[in-house]
């Protein structure tokens, strides 16, 4: 579905991408990870045709540099901070982009409903929160039923619930045989969403392989997502005091990052204090290091 060969991009004397080469098959999810400035966004913008580059990128066999329009017809792109015309409503925006993509207006309405913006359809884009704009970006990316989704830091600005929905969206696309390439600096996202990992370091691909090989080094960590019975404010200091875990609140959810063997302590602390857990989700975390057994460096 996606093939990159020796993709190189220079900004003056700075080499932002240095010969990136990889393939992504249909129905697979590839996470591109790396620090800020590693070249993730440059790679993604090159795939989408927003940047000129040396080398070759093929999307479904179509050369991005030669037939950008044809390649982009097969790509659903979500930018890190999606920007839309602020004076258009959500509905007008979706219809406008549906026209650009040659999709029927009905598809625009369905996409808006699908991302949960149906009741905000008449709201102006300028009045949307960052998370809602991200949802609108996801709706636009779905128009025309693209075969490849390219998502640049899709979790940015989303609350916990929206992040979980995003993961469900990615899994659903994979189940439909679509390919997904996403960039992230949340390493915890990798095992939860990706089949493969591509690590970029200062423009170079330092690892590409199955996410199973992208394993923990010496800091095994998990992340718990918890929805409690209205005692969230009480729970946060309790968890922090009990085990010194990192706790963050996002809407009605809290996330707790802790050593893998410290998960039970969190549950014990909450139950001992009479706090009922309405819902929870656990994700195993990784670090950027790999075991070097399955990937190509």
């Amino acid at each position: 579905m996606l093939s990159a060969r020796a993709v190189t991009k220079r900004y003056g004397s700075t080499l932002a991408l240095n010969g990136a080469t990889f393939d992504l098959d249909a129905g697979r999810v590839l996470a591109v990870v790396g620090a800020n400035g590693a070249g993730k966004s440059t790679l993604i913008k090159s795939i989408v045709g927003l940047m000129r580059f040396d080398g070759q990128i093929l999307v479904d066999g179509i050369d991005v540099a030669r037939d950008g329009r044809g390649a982009r017809r097969r790509i659903g792109y979500l930018a890190q901070n999606p920007a839309f015309h602020q004076d258009l409503s959500v509905r007008e925006t979706a219809i406008f982009y549906a026209r650009l993509r040659g999709a029927p207006e009905e598809a625009a309405r369905e996409a808006v409903e699908h991302v949960g913006l149906g009741e905000h359809a008449e709201k102006l884009v300028g009045a949307l929160s960052g998370g809602m704009r991200q949802r609108l970006g996801l709706a636009v990316a779905q128009l025309g039923d693209p075969a490849l989704y390219v998502l640049d830091e899709p979790g940015t600005g989303l609350d916990v619930a929206a992040r979980l929905e995003l993961r469900d969206f990615i899994r659903a696309q994979r189940a439909r045989g679509k390919s997904v390439l996403l960039s992230t600096h949340w390493l915890e996202d990798v095992p939860a969403t990706a089949d493969e990992v591509l690590v970029l370091d200062r423009g170079r691909v330092t690892f590409h392989g199955p996410s199973a090989d992208f394993v923990v080094s010496n800091a095994v960590r998990s992340r718990l997502f918890l929805r409690l019975n209205g005692h969230t404010d009480d729970a946060i200091p309790l968890i922090q005091h009990a085990a010194g875990h990192e706790v963050a609140r996002s809407g009605e959810w809290i996330s707790v990052t802790c050593p893998t063997d410290g998960k039970t302590k969190v549950f014990e602390t909450l139950l001992e204090n009479g706090i009922v857990i309405l819902d929870f989700r656990v994700e195993e975390a990784t670090t950027a290091s790999t075991d070097g057994t399955g990937g190509q460096s």
């Binding site: 913008k45 989408v48 045709g49 927003l50 950008g68 329009r69 044809g70 982009r72 017809r73 790509i75 792109y77 930018a79 901070n81 999606p82 920007a83 839309f84 015309h85 602020q86 982009y97 650009l100 993509r101 040659g102 636009v140 025309g144």
Partner: peptide, 14 residues
């Protein structure tokens, strides 16, 4: 300026 140029050019148009 608005950042919408990238959004537009990421669609199937030249």
């Amino acid at each position: 300026d608005r950042g919408t140029l990238g959004t537009l050019l990421s669609q199937p148009l030249s």
